[in-house]
């Protein structure tokens, strides 16, 4: 008997097996993607799973696995400051060496929230898997910062998700830092410090209760360039009543530049603290 006839069948078996594996994955993916269980349902299942397996000899591997994954996830979220609150995906194409998924991911980075939609293309080459992001759309909370919108626009254009995450977390870190600093000074010097736009605004106003009309405003912007590098930029604006402070005009005019050199020398917190002390001592 011709051995090639076996080959024909063997080839078909192999291709069928591959097809079945792919279909099974497709089915499972879709099942996974179209299902949702609340935290409550999961907690209930954990306890009923435990009673279910108590009579058996094998250890509760699933529960242990779940716990490890949860610890890893909470560690990463804490470490990076990036919290994912919601994630859904849909596999739109799947072949042996090519998978296309649509993702929707929302969460927050420190106190700023974001929502991302993107397409993830995975290609299996001989040795490695290549991942490409396309159709990226970013919605984020950043006030009306035009720097940030420009950066986001560019990231969307290039599908630059990694840079987005890195820059956004550095931006959010500064944002958080500014909020904490403002809160700290408001608590430390409640008579002098006011927050016209609240803790989330980008400026604070310093007033000496015994010198009405005289005001210093510290403006703290967080700049982001097109590449996504963030730097804090602080400035001092002065407001002086028309009469009475003539002899101090020179000092006041020099204040902004002195504040800038103080920032370089002492850092943000100490520079602001010094300035507040000066304002407080004015009589």
């Amino acid at each position: 008997m011709d051995s090639s006839i076996f080959q024909v069948y063997e080839d078909e078996i192999q291709s069928l097996e591959e097809e079945i594996k792919l279909l099974a994955e497709k089915y499972e993916d879709s099942q996974q993607e179209s299902t949702f269980f609340s935290d409550e349902e999961i907690l209930m299942s954990i306890s009923s799973y435990q009673t279910e397996i108590e009579g058996h000899e094998f250890p509760s591997n699933l529960k242990a696995e779940l716990e490890t994954l949860e610890t890893d996830l909470s560690f990463l979220m804490k470490f990076t400051g990036i919290q994912f609150t919601n994630h859904s995906k849909k596999t739109v194409e799947k072949t042996r060496n090519r998978t296309v998924q649509k993702h929707r991911l929302s969460g927050n980075c420190h106190s700023l929230s974001f929502r991302l939609d993107f397409q993830l293309l995975e290609m299996q080459n001989k040795e490695n898997v290549s991942v490409v992001i396309t159709d990226l759309s970013i919605i984020m909370e950043s006030g009306e910062d035009s720097d940030v919108s420009k950066f986001v626009e560019r990231a969307e254009e290039c599908g630059n998700l990694l840079t987005f995450f890195r820059s956004f977390s550095s931006y959010a870190e500064w944002y958080e830092h500014r909020r904490c600093t403002f809160r700290h000074f408001k608590a430390k010097y409640p008579e002098i410090v006011t927050l016209p736009e609240g803790l989330l605004g980008d400026h604070i106003v310093l007033r000496n209760p015994s010198a009405p009309g005289f005001e210093l405003m510290i403006v703290w912007k967080i700049h982001m360039d097109e590449e996504g590098t963030t730097i804090p930029v602080l400035d001092l604006l002065t407001k002086v009543p028309e009469k009475g402070l003539e002899q101090k005009m020179a000092t006041i005019e020099r204040a902004p530049s002195r504040f800038r050199s103080m920032l370089l020398l002492l850092g943000i917190e100490a520079a602001i603290d010094n300035l507040i002390k000066v304002v407080g001592s004015e009589k």
């Binding site: 954990i46 799973y49 279910e52 696995e65 996830l73």
Partner: peptide, 12 residues
């Protein structure tokens, strides 16, 4: 319960 846990593990 097992299916729910498996779902959760996959999504994590």
């Amino acid at each position: 319960a097992r299916a729910v846990l498996e779902w959760k593990i996959k999504s994590l």
